[in-house]
Nucleic acid binder design. Structure first.
Lengths: 241, 241
DNA sequence: ACCTGAACACCGTTCAAGT
DNA sequence: ACCTGAACACCGTTCAAGT
């Protein structure tokens, strides 16, 4: 489980006196807290309480709460395998963001942690690597593959955050039903007949598929006519939209 | 500017004694606070201070902080025109989410408010209406158009939130450059040569276009071969991924 | 009906002190 | 090196009281 300190600062080089505390133990306790009671339950004081220690003791292991949050997020993510080894690039991306999503659902606090203060450092590099390889294997240029990665990760996190809300936040279908009364001039919204319960899995799969269809369509639009440089596959630099 | 009280509870039916306070004034002050100092600066106490009153006085106008946040979000959104009256459905959607995005950039606290506690009630109905109409005009069924709406709104909010961070949170390009050293086995990530500054506008336009390309491609995939019901255009119910 | 004042149960963090 | 204890400057909210 490799001791990679996110800050890289004060790694205890010898065998730490007698592990009453320690970064790893604190992170484990923090994850338990988040999983059981939500991201808001992870406070310095609550964590100190959970491990039977004074709040200030934590500052020997984390320089701030932000540092703690980043460490928790990184620990959760570092255990995941985003590369599904699929031959098909579409399956590869589907797998990758399925893993991201499952991580978020298993640890409901994760999206909140990632959005916090920009507490995700090298954290997103795993999914990014898989995505860039998959897209560039289809001939997409660097800039556009990074943009597409942001599209995929943004969508995935926002949907997972929505689904994993502490109080289920009204499922979309019920939300619509409840508020529909107030709707004025919202014909299309009022006309909707939603299923009794929202199928988040199917909805997410649909969204990713649609994006991947968009990738294929976008590639077809830019390549057949205007591929000026015939040599390497890393051509097609610009092209806004 | 219509007196629509979000809660619908205690609307002061007569002309309010002498408007020292009032929901509208408080909302205006709250927006100013959020715009100037970020979403975190909007606290009950700070708002009370800004209008020269005791914190508890606010509870005569809002039942809780959540209620206040919802009112602020709704006021910001209610002033926007999401329907650009474009004939082309793609332009229509582009305009709609461009407006959402501009709202978020002009009021940096907005994405935070919307993600909060599910504080967006009928708030999303404007963009939803425009999107559903546009998509259904292309023959997309109800379920899929709602799913696509969630894709569009999720992407838009996540990108705007990222861009509008209090401290610019490291632009993507710089983030990559800074962290690249630590990257192990992230070949594609390390190989990236990003432009000196990230063009958020172009990136967003690319993302929306890609999604719309995906909409067209998805429609083509489901209609030509397998349209079992020839009658109405609201066919093609299922089709997972 | 609207506002004040004191208080409660929380936060993250600093500082000085112990061992 | 690691932990404690008291304190500071904050939160949202309740409760009792004023007008």
């Amino acid at each position: 489980m490799a001791k990679q300190t996110a800050t890289g600062k004060r790694r205890p080089r010898s065998g730490m006196k007698r592990g009453v505390l320690s970064r790893d133990k604190l992170i484990a306790a923090a994850i338990e807290l988040v999983d059981d009671e939500g991201a808001d339950a992870l406070t310095i004081r609550a964590l100190a309480d959970a491990v039977g220690v004074t709040p200030m003791a934590l500052y020997n292991h984390f320089s701030s709460k932000r540092d703690l949050l980043a460490a928790v997020a990184e620990h959760i993510i570092s255990g995941a395998q985003f590369d599904g080894q699929h031959a098909d690039w579409r399956e590869q991306i589907h797998h990758c963001f399925g893993v991201v999503r499952n991580l978020c659902l298993r640890h409901p606090g994760l999206p909140g942690l990632l959005e916090q203060d920009g507490a995700a450092p090298g954290t997103a590099f795993g999914p990014m690597e898989v995505t860039l390889r998959a897209l560039q294997s289809q001939g997409m240029n660097e800039l556009d593959s990074v943009r597409t990665f942001f599209l995929l990760i943004g969508y995935t996190l926002s949907q997972a955050a929505y689904q994993a809300r502490p109080v289920p936040a009204l499922e979309p279908s019920e939300k619509i039903r409840t508020e529909r009364i107030a709707g004025r001039g919202y014909g299309a919204v009022e006309r909707i007949e939603m299923p009794p319960t929202w199928d988040f899995d199917a909805s997410f799969a649909f969204g990713i598929s649609l994006i991947l269809n968009g990738v294929e369509a976008t590639a077809q639009k830019s390549s057949p006519g205007g591929d000026q440089r015939p040599s390497r596959r890393r051509s097609a630099r610009k092209e806004g939209n």
